[in-house]
Amino acid sequence: MLNAVPAASPAPPLLSVQGLDVTYETGAQGFWGRPRAFKALEDISFDLRPGETLGLVGESGSGKTTTGRAVLRRIKASAGKIVFQGKDITNVSGEQLRKLRRNMQLVFQDPYASLNPRMRVIDIVAEPLLVHGLIRHVDEARDRITELLRVVGLPADAHDRFPHAFSGGQRQRIGIARALALQPEFIVADEPVSALDVSVRAQVVNLMQDLQKELGLSYLFIAHDLSVVRHISHRVAILYAGRMVEVAERDELYDHPIHPYTEALLSAVPVPDPRTQRQRKRIVYGGEIPDLVNPPPGCRFSTRCPLATAQCKQEAPKLTERSPGHLVACWNR
């Protein structure tokens, strides 16, 4: 099952994120009230090489989706820099941003809500071509769409049917076909399989892997299912409460986790062997996730960490390289 090959190309990164901060403004009090700031992401940095998959893992509210949306410039970054194909796109807007969409696409989590129920499949898949002026009428793209649908494994007669006629897995394939229509180089997959049945999950993940091999796509693969991430990713990054706590090559991270949070996370993955599973020990930490409106000054995991010291509560640890390509943010490990 673990057939993903680590991409070790020394090519310049396709996408480079440096010190990304995202701040949400919440609940302005009344008409003239001042909105309060909510730090959803703080100091996120990573590189994505061409043809590589970076898995992004974290619990609910840790900022996985926000990272994906911020990289696609859907959400405004309050600080930091996003460099895509050598160009700084942090402040691109308007028509330029629209053009940028040709190279970066998004696959959605919910295949039921992400397809317009009033549009035929062909209209949905051809819409990117239409809005970027590559075709003038949907009928011109009929052959092209047939080919795309075949590539993602949908029947050729899917064209004129509406999304409600398809199952969840098939709908996700339509979503993938839509993302592929413009032949982008970079796709953010925001929990693309979490809404699917386990049996269909593998199919969709394998499809994404095959497409990557054929088309040289780069994925930012957001998920909370650690087994799926292990299957598809070349490298994995762990998020906790809006900060990155550990990044490493896939096998390195799964075999030798360093951060206490990563350890706890990995211990929660069930093993498909009852005897081994019974002997394993789950690491469970108590405590609460910090309030991100008033975050603690130090490490955000310090409220739950068994190793926390006075330093952890005062000063936030930076990501430091422990072995080549393995970065961890922790004072004590």
Binding site: L72, R74, R98, K99, R101, R102, Q105, L106, F108, Q109, D110, A113, S114, L115, N116, P117, R118, E127, P128, V131, H132, G175, R178, A181, L182
Partner: peptide, 26 residues
């Protein structure tokens, strides 16, 4: 708030198309 409206914006639809094609039919 529907994901398909976000999807329309993500593939690069102009605002007028988002409104008339994706929101108005509802």
């Amino acid at each position: 708030q529907m994901p398909y409206v976000e999807a329309a914006e993500m593939i690069g639809c102009r605002t007028s198309r988002v409104i008339f094609r994706h929101i108005l039919p509802n």
